[in-house]
Amino acid sequence: MKSLNVNGVERRFSDEEMPATLAELLKQLDTEASVAVAEIDGRIVRPEDFARTELADGQMIELVRFVGGG
């Protein structure tokens, strides 16, 4: 088993299910449309880099979007 902490929630993956890249994770979670930018272990990942950003067991991932605000 492998795990990723995504937006504060621990998610477990079998070795086959573990997404290889950030883009694959977003696809699995069905959040591709809404993620504006991400952070992995405090490092910022731009949308154009999602597909080539590889994931590893135990990472802390923040998926961030824009919302209305003043």
Binding site: N7, G8, L29, S34, E62, R65, F66, V67, G68
Partner: peptide, 18 residues
């Protein structure tokens, strides 16, 4: 126009405001 940044709600991933 101003916008805010928040965590994506994984269980309810709406289109973003942008």
């Amino acid at each position: 126009v101003t916008v805010a940044l928040r965590r994506v709600d994984i269980d309810d991933a709406n289109d973003d405001t942008l």
